[in-house]
Design a protein around this nucleic acid. Structure first.
Lengths: 214, 214, 214, 214
DNA sequence: CATGAATGAGAATTCATTCAT
DNA sequence: TATGAATGAATTCTCATTCAT
């Protein structure tokens, strides 16, 4: 009876939606690990424990499945813009920026995000539109948020900045580049401890403030 | 032996070596453009204008061919270490570092290098050893050279640096990150003019010196 | 029964019969356009807006569905026998035969009829029984009617005919062959205007009468 | 040694050409019997006793194979134009035209030709270009030859003809229609004896001459 | 040694038909 | 009764690799 209840029509999520979710989860894992060409529809169906037909009924073809997977994964990438915007009101520039940087790098340098990034770079030739899309959203949106915030801080006389966008990009990469670059080339291994990441954040903030603080 | 002598007695490079080169050139282009799985041995043979058997005579299998291609392409990536080392004797820190940065970014941000980088990131899961190898050499070696040079400059009292490796990495990425990141996601399009690149170099140098100059 | 009554007590045609009709209409169009193998049960169900199960409830399998479609379409092919029989009483042989021929060709050379003919020829190997059946009815029945009528006209001394069946077949094909043949090979295009068809009819009648009129 | 001689390089036809012929023969039989969709590339390879790869190396895809088969089969359809042209000099109109008609129907009403015709009609929707092509050549070319010859005979005062093309078409179909039509709907069975065919020819000639002889 | 053919598997996709709900 | 899912095979086409000539 309990078992039956799970599949009963009273559930909010129907059989169909459940299967669709199973397919997406399976495909996400496989695409992220093995890439587009390295993932077969058979594998997806098997891992999702559905028939190939069901996969094809939910997603017209492999390309559409890939698209859906990427969009889904990209959505789940944490949104950091609000946090960045809030920082514009800081009363303690150095400390708050340090804290922001630490949270930023900790958010971005996560296995899922890095795998997604690697996958998109790998498939940029085959799926230019998807790559472009992702590029503009992550970390593009966050960098834009930084640019806005830096401009406000410049308005408050706390920073001296000519080109907020350029400065924001410099800030972001000062913090992220080293672990990100390493992660791109080391697919499987564990990468960095939180302490490591904090150090990158702190060093990046130090350099940034040396150049841009009034 | 007599037979062979008849066919190419005067050639400096035997038929075999010539064909090997043809195969490598064909495979390099194809792998860089289409990736590992996107390149078939048939295509390689056809583009090199040799038979498939010849390909397999020279390279045991597709994996070995890929290895050879990557090593070959990586070697051809410009060596910048001497230039960096020479800079340790500078009499004009700001100007010379600016010039160095401009040459650095111009060297690195080249289609071939970028394609190679994308390819390696794409195949990092399938070929961890190759990716690791490349990571440590390029831009690793150049960054090491920067680290050495920055330490010498610190010794000469021109810079104030605790962690030369970290500072070198920051320097490199301050300059390269933005165009590099963009290039990773935009496979085909033209990317940046020399003037654009110079601006990245100049801005990077400015920030770096603000943080590290005595 | 009570339950059923609730769902459609007033309908003349039950839900079931309506769906059956929808399936047949959908299948007819698809089979005629795309052939037997070119039509999938999925398409049929989708176009008829019913579930596949419903299709299978009404028609055991694809073959039976095809059979039903052909029979239905063949029935709808215009019956010309009465018109032909009436002509036996003509008082004006040449003129009435011309008129008859014009109506004959106009009736036969119609998209639906031609598509059906092409379909049956295409599937004659797979469905010999159906093809045989259709062959004997259309235009077989009409030709038989012509044979009867020609014999009567011979009895009235208006024609001189030894083999009424043969003469009837000659008459029919003298009129139909050219546009029919063309239509078989040109699946999509518009074929002939009414004026064209009338010319074929007139020319056919002229030749026929030259050979068979007393 | 005898066996080896068959495959020696001294043969005019190389291995490759031999395989190509084997594939075409196999495919011709299968396509003619089972149609385009009813024939699988696996079957073709198996019947030709070659690997699927070999099939695909000779013919890019199924469509191209089909094209080649049709062209080959259409070429082998007997050319009747010379015979028809020679008839323009006849000294014995009725007898020679009868003889010509008998040879004509005997040539056309042959299993291979009929199968090819049925196949082309079946696939006219999928391959309009091929169907059009065939239509214009066979029996189009022969009918054109009849038209030329009839015109010459009219010039010699032996026939009275306004529209040579129309008369030629009438002539051809007067002779062919009945067995052709039957053959289209009866895919497998034996159809007509030579005597039957001669009767169709004679009757057709009789009617034609009644209408067109001076 | 090098070319064409073969192998044997695997990929994407589709189909007719049948369960289970 | 009718819907979505499942089944299981088939189809077109490609691939890496290996023989045979």
């Amino acid at each position: 009876m309990t078992d039956l209840a799970q599949t009963s029509p009273l559930q909010e999520e129907g059989r169909s939606a459940r299967k669709r979710r199973a397919i997406m989860e399976a495909a996400t894992g496989l695409f992220l690990r093995n890439g587009y060409q390295g993932t077969s529809m058979d594998e997806v169906a098997a891992l999702a424990a559905v028939s190939k037909q069901t996969v094809y009924k939910h997603f017209t073809d492999k390309e559409q499945l890939f698209n859906a997977i990427i969009l889904g994964a990209a959505e789940r990438v944490g949104d950091f813009t609000d946090t960045v915007a809030a920082f514009a009101d800081t009363e303690n520039l150095e400390e708050d920026l340090g804290e922001l940087a630490r949270r930023y790098i900790t958010t971005v340098i996560q296995p899922r995000t890095l795998q997604l990034r690697r996958l998109l770079i790998a498939e940029a030739g085959r799926f230019p539109a998807i790559a472009r899309d992702y590029y503009q959203r992550a970390p593009g949106r966050t960098i834009d948020a930084f640019a806005d915030t830096f401009q406000k801080l410049a308005g408050r006389g706390l920073l001296r900045i000519d080109d907020p966008s350029g400065a924001a990009a410099q800030f972001a990469w000062l913090i992220l580049s080293q672990p990100m670059d390493r992660a791109m080339f080391f697919a499987d291994e564990q990468q960095y401890t939180p302490a490591d990441l904090h150090r990158f954040a702190d060093e990046g903030v130090r350099v940034f403030l040396a150049a841009y603080r009034t």
